[in-house]
Computed example of a mutant assay.
Amino acid sequence: MTLEEKISHLKAISMEQARAEGNAIIDSHRESLEKVFEDHKAEAVRQAETRIKAETTNAKLKLNQAMAKSQLELKRENGKVQQELKDKLFEEVRALVDDYMKTDAYREFLIKCIRQAEHFAGGAAVTIYINPSDEHRKDELERETGSQLTVSREDFIGGMRAVIRTRNVLIDNSFKTQLDNEYDRFIFSGGDGIG
């Protein structure tokens, strides 16, 4: 082999070896970069999933807050409407009571209440009060019941009240007390069970 052939052969082997080493370095670097890329991609996916979960939780929280606020506003509005209806209903009831107080049935009711109070007193001193609006009935009621009646200074709408001082007893058949009690107890019950 000539010197030129040896140089050429050495050159070819050196180039082949250099290419092999270069390719190995490139392959190693490529694998390293692919590993870094895969790690980075996995981290980015993890961060995105965490952000999505956080945003989803935040959105649900905001939705729940908005729903709670809306429900509270609906309850307030419902309560306001119910109060208006209740007041209107009791205005109508009061008008019906006023109409009732003009009837003979009301006079009979007063007589019955007065007699029951006298019976309950059982001979003890009893003060029987009628409403100021019934003052025009006083003489007639006294004749009918044989009881001494007092016209109250307080307007209790209608009905009667009796006091047995020796026993600390108040018999309250006044319409004011009965209407107030009914007003306090009255609630609207809807089909959904909300009182």
Rank of each mutant, 00 (worst) to 15 (best):
S8K: 11
L170G: 07
A121C: 08
L179T: 07
E38G: 07
L85S: 10
E108R: 02
Q65D: 15
F186K: 06
D184T: 14
A117F: 00
A68W: 06
F188D: 00
Q71L: 12
E43V: 12
L85G: 07
I7K: 06
R161M: 02
K86F: 04
I26W: 14
S147M: 02
S189N: 13
A95W: 04
E84N: 14
A95P: 02
E91A: 11
I111F: 00
G191S: 14
A42T: 11
Q83I: 09
G158L: 00
T56P: 04
K138L: 03
E21P: 00
R19C: 15
D192R: 08
H29P: 08
K60G: 13
Q47W: 06
V81W: 08
C113L: 04
G159N: 01
R107A: 01
K53T: 12
K11L: 13
K176V: 05
I164L: 04
K88V: 15
F90I: 07
E108Q: 06
H119M: 07
L96Q: 14
S133C: 09
K112P: 00
G158A: 03
H119G: 07
H9M: 15
F37V: 08
V36E: 15
F90N: 04
R165N: 15
E38L: 09
D139I: 05
H119Y: 11
M101H: 01
M101W: 02
S189D: 15
I114D: 02
Q71P: 03
S189F: 13
H136M: 08
K80C: 08
K6V: 07
